[in-house]
Design a protein around this nucleic acid. Structure first.
Lengths: 351, 351
DNA sequence: GCACCGATTGACAGCGTTGACAATTCATTT
DNA sequence: AAATGAATTGTCAACGCTGTCAATCGGTGC
């Protein structure tokens, strides 16, 4: 007599389904878990019973009996605008395998981070964890997860570990491609706004830029390479430094759209005609890219797909046969260069 | 012999803790669940044992035995930029009560939505659900939840139900206040960009605007009130219609920042000096508000707090004594009007 | 027809915790 | 000192499912 008062419509249990199908509970269990060794005819009978009774297996019971949790964690720190897209992709993939996603905000700077992580994984018995940057680069997080033997997927980690799968995009190639577009339009002096130090994206995007410049035999003026931190406010400073250079560049490559937007603002304040006198490109295809004028040329990240793939890696992860000697999956997803109004031919007479 | 190969460090169970503390498992359970009727001295002994063994209760077992799930659902459709903030607030509140948040993307237009909801709540045994708009207004969702007897909190629902708690902000008052700022600066002809039809915010923001206009005896020119849908692209059209009116307004109130940004773009294309010839205000304090020039005056939404409060309502929700006759909690959170560069005194000579 | 073997299926004991209820303890009262 | 009753603690079964392993089924070869 657990819930006596409320005459809730009887929730079907596995026993009831078994009875309906004329088999034992264990056989129903086999069908639910898609185990082999069930005759097709039997399976269909069970499936019919499940359908008829609208049966939903009890997650808690399954978890308790099977020492599983059916839960995957998504740990993040800065809720950026990409998070919701990413998690939506991850949830979609999880659903296909009847798993669920637990999102957990964490604070990268928290001195007690390791304990927080430990508590989470032990309490929830997570079957895997997806780490968004900058969490994907914190040794204490990685160590805690590894110690607990929980598979973790690192998203765009700065330092790849040989023992952990990760999901990356080829930022370097895309940055190079975008830079090529500028060079093709006659730009020779190009400024670069760096992202936050320690992020993989910061490094890769710059390298791609440098690749293109070198390939065309163009010099990179150190004074035109300024450090930002991916944020708009910093971007303003950064753009000012670049644009107040005695020999002003004819184009600026910003490491993300927020900083690109900042460059647009600064240029406008300095009465520099856009895009005629200055071309600007960003990265990410953030919402702001199309909300300013001129719209930013940029690189679209397949964020939702990354979420899907990350979840998929966890799900595919087969329990290690002594030390996962399998090749580490490191899918690279394709980026898309998007050209918009913010780039134009270099002004005539420019070096 | 459930997990034979991996010599995992023995996970403490309630029995082990009980033994360590020299009490029965049930007493440990009482302490964990913070039940009364445990002598202080005993409680402390148990607490010490828990601490010493670094014991984490098994969620699945607790859920199974106690017919609970310790899970709250957050259902959303359009992952907007506010989602991650909201969910972070909700998770924070959940943690304080040792609950967990399951985020579940849903598709409002899905013809099978009711079934999807039903599957989710039955599979996860959710203890409560937070509905973000526009899901908070879908009858089939509300009905499914109600039928299952699951407490639901509606965020900014268009149509309040008397039987369901909701979380709102007083958009109307804030819109009025912001409009007042324009009027005080001498603006008389003010355009208005409406949001998507059917959203509570759309209605309330317009009403606040109208309140202010009426209070000052100003007429609202229907030609200056145009329908958008909260999106930038639509906003462009909308702004064009307003600004191409023969008698152009000296200010525009956009129902959100994305549309406000659109108005800025259009004004720039039409060579209207900002803010001298045209003041523009938005709503939400979205990232874009500070990424354009001039920066948008707007209204900041306490999104994270709303998440906290929503979770709190679920958690506080006491099982109904026949039909929850308690007063429906409907907290209103305070909005903050933020004045930035996008507003200025009305041009001299304006009507 | 019978032994034999792989394919199916079932019986049963938990998984770690809590609900119901019984037992014990302790402070008071008579 | 025994009785009384509230406070505290313990016993035991059950929650709904899966792992283990035994039982049964069906077909094969001789």
């Amino acid at each position: 007599m657990r819930r006596p008062p409320v005459p809730t419509r009887e929730t079907a249990t596995i026993e009831i389904v078994a009875e309906q199908a004329g088999v034992s509970a264990k056989t129903v269990s086999r069908v639910i878990n898609n185990e082999r060794g069930v005759r097709t005819e039997t399976r269909e009978r069970v499936l019919a019973a499940i359908e008829k009774l609208d049966y939903q297996p009890n997650l808690a019971a399954r978890g308790l009996a099977g020492a599983r949790s059916f839960l995957i964690g998504l740990f993040y720190d800065n809720p950026g605008d990409y998070l919701s897209e990413f998690q939506t992709g991850a949830v979609q993939r999880c659903r296909e395998s009847n798993l669920h996603l637990m999102v957990e905000p964490l604070v990268a700077a928290d001195p007690d981070l390791a304990r927080a992580v430990s508590t989470l994984i032990r309490q929830l018995r997570l079957e895997g964890v997806i780490l968004l940057p900058p969490l994907s680069d914190l040794p204490e997080v990685r160590a805690t997860l590894a110690e607990a033997g929980i598979p973790a997927v690192h998203i765009a980690p700065m330092h790849r570990q040989d023992d952990a799968p990760s999901v990356d995009t080829d930022d370097r190639a895309a940055a190079r491609q975008l830079t090529d577009e500028l060079i093709e339009r006659g730009h020779r002096r190009i400024g670069f706004m760096l992202g936050r130090a320690g992020h993989r994206a910061t490094e890769q995007r710059y390298l791609g830029f440098a690749d293109a410049m070198h390939a065309h035999g163009l010099a990179i003026d150190p004074k035109l390479v300024q450090t930002g931190n991916f944020e708009f406010a910093e971007g303003l400073e950064c753009a000012r430094r670049i644009l107040s250079s005695p020999e002003r560049p004819t184009a600026i490559f910003a490491s993300n759209d927020d900083m690109g937007a900042a460059a647009v603002c600064v240029a406008r304040q300095m009465d520099i005609a856009l895009p005629q006198q200055l071309s600007i490109v960003g990265f990410d295809d953030a919402p702001v890219a199309t909300m300013i004028w001129p719209q930013l040329s940029t690189v679209r990240q397949p964020v939702r797909s990354m979420g899907r793939v990350a979840a998929d890696l966890i799900i595919q992860h087969k329990p290690h046969r002594r030390g996962w000697p399998q090749p580490m999956p490191r899918p690279h997803l394709d980026l898309e260069v998007i050209l918009r109004g913010s780039i134009a031919a270099a002004p005539v007479g420019a070096t």
